[in-house]
């Protein structure tokens, strides 16, 4: 099963912890808010994703099932 990492832009207040914990897929914009790579996540990266989700102080990150055929943007 592959997943997409999503951020709730209303909840997010740009602490940036996620980008530190999951730099493979999360970058920060000029103002410190996460830019998330749209590539589905699987395998070895799942633990990184889960760690970033758990560390978010405002619980703004979540994993969603990737629709079949979801590819990199």
């Amino acid at each position: 099963m592959r997943y997409l990492l999503k951020v709730d832009p209303i909840a997010c207040d740009g602490r940036g912890i996620c980008a530190e914990l999951f730099p493979e897929r999360i970058d920060l914009d000029d103002w410190g808010f996460p830019i998330i790579d749209a590539t589905p996540i699987d395998g070895s990266l799942m633990s990184h994703a889960k760690r970033a989700i758990a560390a978010c102080p405002v619980l703004a990150l979540r994993l969603e099932h990737a629709p079949p055929g979801a590819v990199r943007r």
Binding site: P9, C12, G14, D29, D30, W31, F33
Partner: peptide
């Protein structure tokens, strides 16, 4: 004023 990219982006 809810989403960071909107608040900061539109301001910039």
């Amino acid at each position: 004023g809810q989403c960071g990219p909107c608040v900061h982006g539109l301001g910039a």
